[in-house]
Protein backbone atom coordinates (compact mmCIF):
# COMPACT_ATOMS: atom_id res chain seq x y z
CA UNK A 1 0.00 0.00 0.00
CA UNK A 2 1.23 3.48 -0.84
CA UNK A 3 1.90 5.64 2.17
CA UNK A 4 0.33 9.07 2.50
CA UNK A 5 3.71 10.59 3.24
CA UNK A 6 7.17 9.19 2.93
CA UNK A 7 10.14 11.39 3.72
CA UNK A 8 13.68 10.01 3.48
CA UNK A 9 16.91 11.73 4.46
CA UNK A 10 15.35 15.19 4.29
CA UNK A 11 17.83 18.02 4.70
CA UNK A 12 17.27 21.74 4.40
CA UNK A 13 20.28 23.96 4.92
CA UNK A 14 20.21 27.71 4.73
CA UNK A 15 23.16 29.89 3.96
CA UNK A 16 23.32 32.41 6.73
CA UNK A 17 23.09 35.99 5.52
CA UNK A 18 25.71 38.49 6.47
CA UNK A 19 29.27 39.31 5.70
CA UNK A 20 31.15 37.78 8.59
CA UNK A 21 29.90 34.27 8.10
CA UNK A 22 32.62 31.78 7.36
CA UNK A 23 32.36 30.02 4.04
CA UNK A 24 30.75 26.65 4.03
CA UNK A 25 28.84 27.16 7.27
CA UNK A 26 25.14 26.47 7.12
CA UNK A 27 22.11 26.74 9.30
CA UNK A 28 20.87 23.20 9.34
CA UNK A 29 17.14 23.72 9.73
CA UNK A 30 16.37 20.10 8.93
CA UNK A 31 19.23 17.64 9.09
CA UNK A 32 18.35 14.17 7.94
CA UNK A 33 14.75 13.39 8.80
CA UNK A 34 12.82 10.24 7.90
CA UNK A 35 9.06 10.21 8.33
CA UNK A 36 6.24 8.08 7.11
CA UNK A 37 2.55 8.53 7.61
CA UNK A 38 0.10 5.81 6.61
CA UNK A 39 -3.14 6.67 4.85
CA UNK A 40 -6.00 8.11 6.92
CA UNK A 41 -3.97 8.74 10.04
CA UNK A 42 -2.57 11.75 11.85
CA UNK A 43 1.08 11.85 12.85
CA UNK A 44 2.69 14.79 14.55
CA UNK A 45 6.03 16.57 14.61
CA UNK A 46 6.71 18.23 17.94
CA UNK A 47 9.47 20.66 18.81
CA UNK A 48 10.32 24.15 19.95
CA UNK A 49 10.68 27.22 17.75
CA UNK A 50 13.84 26.65 15.74
CA UNK A 51 13.54 22.88 15.73
CA UNK A 52 12.83 22.90 12.00
CA UNK A 53 9.28 21.58 12.31
CA UNK A 54 7.68 24.27 10.15
CA UNK A 55 10.40 23.85 7.53
CA UNK A 56 9.45 20.18 7.22
CA UNK A 57 5.82 21.15 6.79
CA UNK A 58 6.60 23.64 4.04
CA UNK A 59 8.87 21.19 2.24
CA UNK A 60 6.19 18.50 2.37
CA UNK A 61 3.64 20.94 0.97
CA UNK A 62 6.03 21.69 -1.89
CA UNK A 63 6.46 25.34 -0.92
CA UNK A 64 10.22 25.22 -0.50
CA UNK A 65 12.79 22.90 -1.98
CA UNK A 66 14.90 20.68 0.23
CA UNK A 67 18.67 20.66 0.08
CA UNK A 68 18.57 16.89 -0.28
CA UNK A 69 16.37 13.94 0.44
CA UNK A 70 13.17 12.71 -1.07
CA UNK A 71 9.55 13.46 -0.29
CA UNK A 72 6.71 11.35 -1.61
CA UNK A 73 3.15 12.44 -0.96
CA UNK A 74 0.66 9.73 -1.87
CA UNK A 75 3.11 8.24 -4.30
CA UNK A 76 4.07 11.46 -6.07
CA UNK A 77 7.68 12.59 -5.81
CA UNK A 78 7.23 16.20 -4.70
CA UNK A 79 10.50 17.40 -6.19
CA UNK A 80 10.98 15.23 -9.26
CA UNK A 81 7.65 15.25 -11.03
CA UNK A 82 6.28 16.77 -14.15
CA UNK A 83 4.39 20.03 -13.91
CA UNK A 84 1.15 18.23 -14.52
CA UNK A 85 1.78 15.70 -11.76
CA UNK A 86 2.58 18.56 -9.40
CA UNK A 87 -0.58 20.42 -10.35
CA UNK A 88 -2.59 17.31 -9.63
CA UNK A 89 -0.80 16.78 -6.35
CA UNK A 90 -1.53 20.33 -5.19
CA UNK A 91 -5.22 19.62 -5.62
CA UNK A 92 -4.88 16.96 -2.98
CA UNK A 93 -2.56 18.69 -0.50
CA UNK A 94 -3.60 21.58 1.74
CA UNK A 95 -2.03 23.48 4.63
CA UNK A 96 -3.65 24.96 7.71
CA UNK A 97 -1.55 27.83 8.98
CA UNK A 98 -0.93 28.95 12.52
CA UNK A 99 -1.86 32.59 12.36
CA UNK A 100 -5.48 33.32 11.44
CA UNK A 101 -4.54 36.98 10.97
CA UNK A 102 -1.92 36.64 8.27
CA UNK A 103 -3.22 33.54 6.53
CA UNK A 104 -6.27 35.31 5.13
CA UNK A 105 -5.88 38.11 2.60
CA UNK A 106 -7.35 41.18 4.36
CA UNK A 107 -8.78 42.43 1.05
CA UNK A 108 -10.73 39.28 0.26
CA UNK A 109 -14.23 38.47 1.43
CA UNK A 110 -14.86 35.14 3.13
CA UNK A 111 -16.54 33.88 -0.02
CA UNK A 112 -13.56 34.77 -2.19
CA UNK A 113 -11.14 33.22 0.29
CA UNK A 114 -12.98 29.91 0.30
CA UNK A 115 -13.65 29.86 -3.45
CA UNK A 116 -10.02 30.46 -4.26
CA UNK A 117 -8.69 26.88 -4.00
CA UNK A 118 -11.56 25.68 -6.20
CA UNK A 119 -11.03 28.36 -8.80
CA UNK A 120 -7.25 28.10 -8.86
CA UNK A 121 -7.41 24.34 -9.26
CA UNK A 122 -10.12 24.68 -11.90
CA UNK A 123 -12.55 22.51 -10.00
CA UNK A 124 -16.15 23.18 -11.01
CA UNK A 125 -18.33 23.96 -8.00
CA UNK A 126 -21.74 25.19 -6.95
CA UNK A 127 -22.30 27.92 -4.43
CA UNK A 128 -23.93 25.56 -1.94
CA UNK A 129 -20.56 23.84 -1.66
CA UNK A 130 -19.26 27.05 -0.08
CA UNK A 131 -22.17 27.43 2.31
CA UNK A 132 -21.97 23.77 3.21
CA UNK A 133 -18.31 23.94 4.21
CA UNK A 134 -18.98 27.12 6.22
CA UNK A 135 -21.70 25.30 8.08
CA UNK A 136 -19.40 22.37 8.65
CA UNK A 137 -16.73 24.52 10.32
CA UNK A 138 -19.34 26.17 12.52
CA UNK A 139 -19.87 29.49 10.76
CA UNK A 140 -23.64 29.56 10.81
CA UNK A 141 -25.71 30.85 9.25
CA UNK A 142 -23.23 30.90 6.33
CA UNK A 143 -25.03 33.76 4.60
CA UNK A 144 -23.96 36.04 7.45
CA UNK A 145 -20.31 35.39 6.75
CA UNK A 146 -19.97 35.18 2.96
CA UNK A 147 -19.54 38.88 2.35
CA UNK A 148 -17.54 39.77 5.42
CA UNK A 149 -13.87 40.70 5.48
CA UNK A 150 -11.39 39.05 7.84
CA UNK A 151 -11.09 42.15 10.03
CA UNK A 152 -14.79 41.89 10.79
CA UNK A 153 -14.32 38.43 12.32
CA UNK A 154 -12.92 37.26 15.65
CA UNK A 155 -9.69 35.29 15.77
CA UNK A 156 -11.59 32.04 16.19
CA UNK A 157 -13.91 32.78 13.28
CA UNK A 158 -10.93 33.56 11.08
CA UNK A 159 -9.34 30.26 11.89
CA UNK A 160 -12.64 28.57 11.01
CA UNK A 161 -12.49 30.32 7.64
CA UNK A 162 -8.91 29.11 7.18
CA UNK A 163 -9.98 25.56 8.00
CA UNK A 164 -12.90 25.82 5.58
CA UNK A 165 -10.51 26.95 2.84
CA UNK A 166 -8.27 23.96 3.49
CA UNK A 167 -11.07 21.42 3.32
CA UNK A 168 -13.27 22.86 0.58
CA UNK A 169 -11.46 21.04 -2.25
CA UNK A 170 -11.50 17.63 -0.55
CA UNK A 171 -7.79 17.24 0.11
CA UNK A 172 -6.40 13.81 0.84
CA UNK A 173 -3.34 15.07 2.68
CA UNK A 174 -3.23 18.05 5.05
CA UNK A 175 -0.33 19.73 6.81
CA UNK A 176 -1.67 21.42 9.96
CA UNK A 177 1.04 23.83 11.15
CA UNK A 178 0.22 24.84 14.74
CA UNK A 179 -3.49 25.09 13.90
CA UNK A 180 -4.56 26.14 17.41
CA UNK A 181 -1.60 27.87 19.02
CA UNK A 182 -2.91 31.38 18.38
CA UNK A 183 -6.34 30.61 19.79
CA UNK A 184 -7.57 31.03 23.34
CA UNK A 185 -6.69 27.92 25.34
CA UNK A 186 -10.36 27.31 26.06
CA UNK A 187 -11.12 27.13 22.32
CA UNK A 188 -8.38 24.69 21.38
CA UNK A 189 -10.18 21.44 22.04
CA UNK A 190 -13.18 22.46 19.97
CA UNK A 191 -10.92 23.24 17.01
CA UNK A 192 -9.00 20.01 17.40
CA UNK A 193 -12.30 18.12 17.51
CA UNK A 194 -13.43 19.95 14.39
CA UNK A 195 -10.28 19.05 12.49
CA UNK A 196 -10.30 15.46 13.74
CA UNK A 197 -13.97 15.11 12.84
CA UNK A 198 -13.44 16.11 9.21
CA UNK A 199 -10.27 13.99 9.06
CA UNK A 200 -12.08 10.86 10.25
CA UNK A 201 -15.11 11.41 8.10
CA UNK A 202 -13.12 11.85 4.89
CA UNK A 203 -10.21 9.57 5.82
CA UNK A 204 -7.70 12.35 5.28
CA UNK A 205 -4.03 11.80 6.10
CA UNK A 206 -2.52 14.53 8.17
CA UNK A 207 0.76 15.84 9.46
CA UNK A 208 0.30 17.93 12.60
CA UNK A 209 3.02 20.35 13.62
CA UNK A 210 2.98 21.65 17.19
CA UNK A 211 5.22 22.97 19.93
CA UNK A 212 2.81 21.62 22.52
CA UNK A 213 3.05 17.88 23.04
CA UNK A 214 -0.37 17.78 24.70
CA UNK A 215 -1.96 18.96 21.44
CA UNK A 216 0.01 16.33 19.50
CA UNK A 217 -1.03 13.68 21.99
CA UNK A 218 -4.66 14.66 21.71
CA UNK A 219 -4.84 14.65 17.94
CA UNK A 220 -2.25 12.24 16.59
CA UNK A 221 -1.55 8.56 16.86
CA UNK A 222 2.21 8.82 16.48
CA UNK A 223 4.52 11.55 17.75
CA UNK A 224 7.90 12.52 16.28
CA UNK A 225 9.95 14.74 18.58
CA UNK A 226 12.27 17.05 16.68
CA UNK A 227 15.30 18.80 18.13
CA UNK A 228 17.52 21.05 16.02
CA UNK A 229 16.49 19.48 12.77
CA UNK A 230 16.73 15.85 13.88
CA UNK A 231 14.21 13.42 15.23
CA UNK A 232 15.25 12.48 18.76
CA UNK A 233 12.31 10.27 19.63
CA UNK A 234 9.42 8.75 17.74
CA UNK A 235 6.68 6.40 18.73
CA UNK A 236 3.07 5.83 19.60
CA UNK A 237 1.59 8.95 21.25
CA UNK A 238 0.23 7.10 24.26
CA UNK A 239 3.53 5.32 24.90
CA UNK A 240 5.65 8.43 24.50
CA UNK A 241 3.56 10.52 26.85
CA UNK A 242 3.41 7.81 29.49
CA UNK A 243 7.02 6.73 29.18
CA UNK A 244 9.25 9.22 27.43
CA UNK A 245 12.79 8.00 26.85
CA UNK A 246 14.70 11.00 25.55
CA UNK A 247 15.45 13.67 28.18
CA UNK A 248 14.15 16.33 25.79
CA UNK A 249 10.81 14.58 25.39
CA UNK A 250 10.61 14.38 29.18
CA UNK A 251 11.15 18.13 29.49
CA UNK A 252 8.50 18.82 26.84
CA UNK A 253 5.99 16.75 28.77
CA UNK A 254 6.92 18.25 32.14
CA UNK A 255 6.45 21.77 30.77
CA UNK A 256 2.84 21.34 29.75
CA UNK A 257 0.65 23.28 32.21
CA UNK A 258 -1.61 21.00 34.22
CA UNK A 259 -4.50 21.79 36.51
CA UNK A 260 -3.60 22.55 40.09
CA UNK A 261 -1.23 24.74 42.02
CA UNK A 262 2.40 23.75 42.25
CA UNK A 263 5.27 25.26 44.17
CA UNK A 264 7.90 24.82 41.53
CA UNK A 265 7.68 23.11 38.22
CA UNK A 266 10.46 20.64 37.68
CA UNK A 267 11.73 21.11 34.17
CA UNK A 268 14.77 18.92 33.79
CA UNK A 269 16.53 20.88 31.12
CA UNK A 270 19.08 23.65 31.00
CA UNK A 271 19.00 26.85 28.95
CA UNK A 272 16.96 27.12 25.80
CA UNK A 273 17.18 26.03 22.20
CA UNK A 274 19.60 28.86 21.42
CA UNK A 275 22.03 27.39 23.96
CA UNK A 276 22.84 24.55 21.65
CA UNK A 277 24.10 24.92 18.13
CA UNK A 278 24.11 22.49 15.26
CA UNK A 279 27.86 23.05 15.06
CA UNK A 280 28.77 21.27 18.26
CA UNK A 281 30.25 17.81 18.22
CA UNK A 282 28.48 14.81 19.62
CA UNK A 283 24.88 15.00 20.79
CA UNK A 284 23.30 18.33 19.92
CA UNK A 285 21.22 18.22 23.07
CA UNK A 286 24.07 17.56 25.49
CA UNK A 287 24.54 21.13 26.70
CA UNK A 288 20.95 21.25 27.87
CA UNK A 289 20.85 17.70 29.10
CA UNK A 290 21.08 16.97 32.82
CA UNK A 291 22.05 13.36 32.14
CA UNK A 292 24.91 14.10 29.74
CA UNK A 293 27.81 11.69 30.04
CA UNK A 294 31.26 11.55 28.49
CA UNK A 295 30.27 9.80 25.29
CA UNK A 296 27.66 12.45 24.51
CA UNK A 297 30.47 14.89 23.76
CA UNK A 298 32.27 12.59 21.39
CA UNK A 299 29.69 10.79 19.40
CA UNK A 300 26.35 11.82 18.01
CA UNK A 301 23.74 9.24 18.99
CA UNK A 302 21.89 7.49 16.18
CA UNK A 303 18.16 7.04 16.00
CA UNK A 304 17.75 3.41 17.07
CA UNK A 305 14.86 1.17 17.95
CA UNK A 306 14.98 1.20 21.75
CA UNK A 307 11.92 -1.00 22.03
CA UNK A 308 9.43 -2.28 19.52
CA UNK A 309 7.98 0.53 17.49
CA UNK A 310 9.93 3.17 19.41
CA UNK A 311 12.89 5.11 18.06
CA UNK A 312 15.19 7.20 20.20
CA UNK A 313 18.48 9.01 19.60
CA UNK A 314 20.21 9.02 22.98
CA UNK A 315 23.29 7.28 24.40
CA UNK A 316 21.33 6.34 27.51
CA UNK A 317 19.50 3.69 25.52
Amino acid sequence: MVEALSVKGLKKYYKPRGRFVSKGSFVKAVDGVDLSIPEASIHSVVGETGSGKSTIGRVVAGLIEPTSGEVFVQGTDVFNSSKKEMRDLRKKVQIIFQDPYSSLNPRFTVMRIIEEPLKLNKIPFKSDQITEILRKVGLTPPEDFLNRYPHELSGGQRQRVAIARSFVIDPTFVVADEPVSMLDASMRVSFLDLIAGIQRERKISMMLISHDISIAYYLSSRINVLYLGKIVEAGDGEEIVNGPLHPYTKALIQSVPKLGKIEKKSVDIKGNIMTSSSEITGCKFRERCIFAIDICRKKEPELVEAKPNRLVACHLY
Binding site: I95, S103, P117, L120, N121
Partner: peptide
Protein backbone atom coordinates in the same frame (compact mmCIF):
# COMPACT_ATOMS: atom_id res chain seq x y z
CA UNK B 1 5.99 36.07 2.92
CA UNK B 2 2.49 36.13 4.40
CA UNK B 3 0.82 32.74 4.70
CA UNK B 4 -2.13 33.74 2.52
CA UNK B 5 0.33 34.01 -0.36
CA UNK B 6 1.75 30.59 0.48
CA UNK B 7 -1.74 29.19 0.60
CA UNK B 8 -2.43 30.46 -2.91
CA UNK B 9 0.89 29.01 -4.11
CA UNK B 10 0.00 25.67 -2.62
CA UNK B 11 -3.17 25.85 -4.72
CA UNK B 12 -1.37 26.21 -8.03
CA UNK B 13 -1.62 30.00 -8.23
Amino acid sequence: EWPFVESAKANNA
